[in-house]
Design a protein around this nucleic acid. Structure first.
Lengths: 342, 342
DNA sequence: CGCCACTGCTGAATCGAATCAGCCGCATCA
DNA sequence: TGATGCGGCTGATTCGATTCAGCAGTGGCG
């Protein structure tokens, strides 16, 4: 305020400027700004003077200086295989970023594209930058081994779990989702249900869990699963598999597709065969992606809570009382028009 | 190596440890590790000793300490309205993250969701953390005003431009893309071309530029645009608008849809009207999203180079010789089966 | 012989905040 | 009256790197 005015290039305001302005020591100013005023028995009047000085000078703490001293950077790393450039799992980033902001942290992103070497580099980079923790995320829900580089670091698994299920992990409740999907069909009076899309990879968790859920919900009403159409989780495979299934003479009143892309393929196959959704076949699927809303009729789909997953992972990462273990977030049904009514 | 062995909790290796190990001062070690060995005329033998010590001790510099001194954080901010959680514009993040890594930087992400207040917070946050620069990205290509908070910071616009076109900006070459789209139809002998999807918002740049390109390419072959079907850039609007257009008795041999979602809507409308793609109608669109590959037949689409856009923006941000101004990245045609052959 | 230039290196200050160990003045109590 | 405690504050050090200013030693030159 005084000596700074004549200088042309305005120097950055530092804590000692604030202290001088308020007529206290930097120590006192520091205590106040770190919320330790009570603990240090600073007089209310002094505190107010300091806060006024902060506001007047527009003081912003220097993060580097603080980090150097405290060894905390108010930064969380997010390392993923491919969630950034991906269809809609990228919503996990949105959630992570929002939750981080709420907790006065910032997200540092690194995408390995599945390359283990790049992943190692990214992890080293983050550890070197002393992030307060790392969220390790995968595009598809599955079992992973925590990379060695993260052993010494606080880490939360996002959309994946370690083999022992001991590390903190946040995943969708695919089993509950499976039950919900089957229930939608059952509630509509559809009891002749096939599942389209078995999970191709052994470490994948989403498929098996959804399957369990579907079977459980059917069993609870005394219905058996009519059959399974194996196929990869892509539009083209969904189309091919469903077409083959149809041309083999199969029919079903209800299909549970393992994701929206398979469902899109099924739509195409059914259309080619002259079958109508939902009049001839009711379809429920998983993902709740925007694709579901683009199909005609709109696809009833059990939504993956990607944004919540990301947010939850960051919150657990920054919660020192977190006990580890897997947390399952609910999947809710987004109703479209692909299930016949009542 | 010596005093550290007996200690249980291994202290982090710092520069002075390296210096001691190599028998030089920290000053010398610092010069060597910062590539200033030649400038400071350090003996090759000394340099080797220091580097050996670094390797032996596994030294990693403390970023906070460095940043405190140099005021550079080797960090770039990426602020966007919604690219993180978006369909596939999120590939910009992938590109940005990769380019940053190549330049030994790291990306700090913030998504405002379009909320100006949150955007201000995010910008403040990044400026406070002294990022070396900020990439300001938008989901849709358009004209924007650089937020005030970024005035004093190095910034590059990504997928958007300022009104004066003076700031460094990286955008797709939509006009070239428009020419390419029209050329695909013309080359297939289709001269009766309609455009589906006028740009709804005045500040949007993609639509007008694509339109210019289409008109230019047609004009170059002496063909006039047959007409325009106005509609928003969504699947549903694409369907509705195309349906209305068809029921008004219109027909065309070729449609240029302003994006893949509109094209999907057009597919649906054409199918309902009993028209086949590409036999009755050839379709070209823009985006080159995975959706294009999911449609049957696969959609020929002019690809938005999102990954490159992100990478390019970061490279320009970190290039001190950059002169500002807009850089247009080429859009290339991804061929599907939606255009009739020859 | 004295001066200079050059090589090869180092001591000490600095960046900005956090924090340990006290210090002063006053009230309390035996 | 002296010891004790407490409220309210501060001086000095520390985090780990960068960097300015400068210092020995050697060789060349007039």
């Amino acid at each position: 305020m005084d000596e700074g005015r004549s200088v042309v290039k305005t120097r950055r305001v530092v804590l000692s400027d604030v202290a001088a302005e308020a007529g206290v020591s930097t120590t006192t100013a520091s205590y106040i700004l770190n919320g330790r005023a009570d603990e240090m028995r600073i007089a209310t009047e002094t505190e107010e003077r300091v806060r006024a000085a902060v506001a007047r000078l527009g003081y912003r703490p220097n993060r580097s200086a603080r980090s150097l001293r405290t060894r905390r950077t108010a930064t969380v790393g997010l390392i993923s295989d491919q969630i950034a450039g991906e269809q809609y799992g990228s919503s996990m980033l949105t959630g992570a970023s929002l939750a981080a902001r709420e907790l006065d942290h910032v997200v540092v992103m690194g995408e390995s594209g599945g390359d283990p070497e790049l992943e190692r580099l990214l992890i080293d980079e983050m550890v070197e930058r002393e992030v307060d923790g790392v969220v390790y995320a995968t595009r598809t829900a599955r079992t992973v081994h925590l990379p060695d580089g993260l052993r010494g670091t606080r880490a939360v698994l996002l959309n994946c779990e370690d083999p022992d299920r001991t590390l903190p992990a946040v995943v969708p409740d695919d089993e509950g989702g499976g039950r919900a999907a089957a229930s939608v069909l059952l509630d509509a009076g559809v009891e002749d249900v096939w599942v389209v899309g078995e999970d191709p990879t052994p470490e994948a968790t989403a498929g098996p869990r959804r399957m369990w859920g579907v079977r459980a919900a059917l069993a609870a009403r005394g219905v058996a699963l009519a059959g399974i159409v194996p196929c990869d989780w892509s539009v083209n495979e969904g189309f091919e598999a469903t077409s083959r299934w149809l041309s083999d003479g199969n029919r079903a009143a209800g299909l549970v597709c393992m994701n929206d892309r398979i469902a899109m393929g099924a739509y195409q196959a059914l259309a080619e065969a002259g079958l109508r959704v939902p009049d001839d076949v009711s379809i429920v699927s998983f993902d709740g992606s925007s694709l579901a809303g683009w199909l005609r009729p709109a696809l009833t789909s059990v939504e993956l809570p990607f944004t919540d997953l990301g947010a939850h992972a960051v919150r657990r990462l920054l919660d020192p009382t977190d006990e580890g273990g897997t947390v399952f977030l609910p999947m809710v049904v987004r109703h479209g028009g692909s299930v016949r009514s009542g």
